[in-house]
């Protein structure tokens, strides 16, 4: 299944992904998700479609530790976030809730490009530009957590916190 890319600039902060002014909605994720990334792209929450990709530049998700940031992106139906690099906490949070966060060369992706992602092969295919972007595998532990759909199912399955 291929879907469109929503391209964002470098250094998208968690304040832009889910602003602090909506802290009162944090127990209501579907409502909170209606404001996802609205400070960066006003039309994003109303126009994003299930299966779309969020594509960042460097240091995507910098700032706070709010897990609501990847959670609202996932709730919008986004299939994966691709970026040249991620802020540490955002990256860990995304994997922990089962949202693929892929470190790859996003300079080869423009706004509106149609993409396909093969996580196991480690390839993003840009169908619009007809290029393949190969990315290195994530760490074994993170890959194992993502495959289980997140950290809670991973720990439940193993009955403990183990390294893969």
């Amino acid at each position: 299944m291929s879907s469109r890319a929503w391209k964002f600039k470098d250094n998208i902060s968690t304040d832009e992904i889910t602003p602090g002014r909506y802290v009162g909605l944090r127990s209501n994720i579907p409502e909170l998700a209606k404001h996802t990334l609205e400070d960066a792209r006003k039309e994003f929450p109303s126009e994003v479609k299930s299966g779309d990709f969020v594509v960042g530049g460097k240091n995507f998700g910098m700032g706070s530790s709010r897990e609501h940031a990847p959670l609202v992106i996932k709730t919008c139906g986004v299939r994966a976030v691709l970026a040249q690099s991620f802020a540490r906490i955002f990256y860990r949070n995304a994997i922990n809730i089962g949202l693929p966060a892929v470190i790859c060369d996003t300079t080869k992706i423009d706004e509106g490009d149609i993409l396909d992602l093969d996580l196991t092969k480690g390839v993003v295919t840009n169908l619009t530009k007809n290029v393949e972007i190969v990315f290195p595998r994530m760490s074994k532990t993170m890959e194992a957590i993502l495959l289980e759909g997140g950290l809670i199912p991973y720990v439940e399955k193993h009955g403990d916190l183990l390294l893969a």
Partner: peptide, 26 residues
């Protein structure tokens, strides 16, 4: 702590770091 500025306690030489809700739940 579930807060990015958890690293503050490093001023007391504690290894302190922020994580998200799921990591801290575990």
């Amino acid at each position: 702590g579930t807060d990015s500025h958890t690293c503050t306690s490093g001023g007391l030489c504690a290894f302190a770091t922020g994580m998200g809700a799921t990591d801290i739940a575990i």
